[in-house]
Design a binder for these strands. Sequence first.
DNA 1: CGCGAGCTTGATGCCGATCAATGCATGTGG
DNA 2: CCACATGCATTGATCGGCATCAAGCTCGCG
Lengths: 245, 245
Amino acid sequence: MQASPSPIRLEPFKVACSSCNLRELCLPVGMSTEQMQRLDEIVSARRSLARGDALFRSGSPFTALYAVRTGFFKTNVTSEDGRDQVTGFQMAGELLGLDGIGTERHTCDAIALEDSQVCVIPFNLLEDLSRELSDLQRHFHKIMSREIVRDHGVMLLLGSMRAEERLAAFLLNLTQRLRKRGFSASSLVLRMTREEIGSYLGLKLETVSRAFSKFQEDGLLEVKQRQIRVLDVAALQALVNGSGT
Amino acid sequence: MQASPSPIRLEPFKVACSSCNLRELCLPVGMSTEQMQRLDEIVSARRSLARGDALFRSGSPFTALYAVRTGFFKTNVTSEDGRDQVTGFQMAGELLGLDGIGTERHTCDAIALEDSQVCVIPFNLLEDLSRELSDLQRHFHKIMSREIVRDHGVMLLLGSMRAEERLAAFLLNLTQRLRKRGFSASSLVLRMTREEIGSYLGLKLETVSRAFSKFQEDGLLEVKQRQIRVLDVAALQALVNGSGT
DNA sequence: CGCGAGCTTGATGCCGATCAATGCATGTGG
DNA sequence: CCACATGCATTGATCGGCATCAAGCTCGCG
């Protein structure tokens, strides 16, 4: 929570979307090389963050979207009275900052959970370009829509699942996204604390910890602090699809 | 839940956005009369629904967005195992169908909670037009972004508030939106059942009912079935901003 | 008028929060 | 290099809020 106030670091290097290994996951999905070059022109800066740094904070002016290049983030909203809720975890290829478009100010904090790099996408330039490139326009709309659908899924989880079901759903979601990025689906290292997981899932950290222990007892997982090995995906899946009320 | 399978009714009448009394709440916000006329061209159809009818259902192909002209809707998602979650209630001037853009299929059901009318906005035409009119483009992006922010607010509610706080937040949100539409902020008629409120708030209908009774006892509300009179806004507000964990 | 959907209210039980103590890993300064 | 501090995780004991089960009640409607 303490933001080591390291100065913003902007890399001078140019990283072309067209040669980025995330292009199949990120904003350029489905674009031609030619179109990608146009995109390259507006995505001119990268920014590096150390673990714990804020990419942006609630209330700060919105100017750009950010695509995670490397690293891992969490976003969280805070209500007036200090309630805190993690609204998501973002990994490579995912977009941050969509919340700020509506009011031209960010409405949540985005915090790096490990040393990370993001591509800076100035939003007015993105809008300009997406008026020219209908493929880009369409894809951007899809990204926003999917974010809405994702949020609905979280609402379903928060509104109707019990603790272990929530954790199972969370783990399955995480492994699925890691697999898409070429990582093992069975072995993962959590980048976030039990408390952050709990906040995301609407649970207390003790409950999260107990659920992990239970899963280990039952042979679904091997848990060593943040080192997780998934032993029985089917059982996790069964839990999620389980005793639906 | 039973969809009386009445045939889709399309009105022949043309209702110009430029003369619609919702233009300050709906898609045309901030557009010039000229621009609004362009919008009029693509919003060519209205559709009427009886109470209980589905505007669209999860899985059905996505072709258009819908702006509520009159009436009241709920949206709900259903998980594979039959869990159900109301994700929102929509009133005049609000947009339905954003969830479908990502996959070109709707991911939730939209059900009319009373006899209603919507304007049909074919999505490909909207995209075409918003490549021409940057004001429209910008406004549409804002609408999507605000939907994301709204969802984050619901997550906060579901993840960290107790039953009475949730209901208070819900009522305040409702009255605020009604006031914007020129209705009394203190007297309202709920369009949804206790069960639907409960589903939205992650509570059982009995809990919702008890919270209403409690509010009445404490002099915050007058409750007569679905007729609600708000007697003490400040107290409701205090509840929401109350004992933040 | 009588039926049924929706609402209220009460009694009981369970899940997860809370409170509290201990354990474990990392890092820091003497 | 050890001693200790610190942050995070685990585990246990207890408590409380909401779910669940179970009657009645109300009101609109056929």
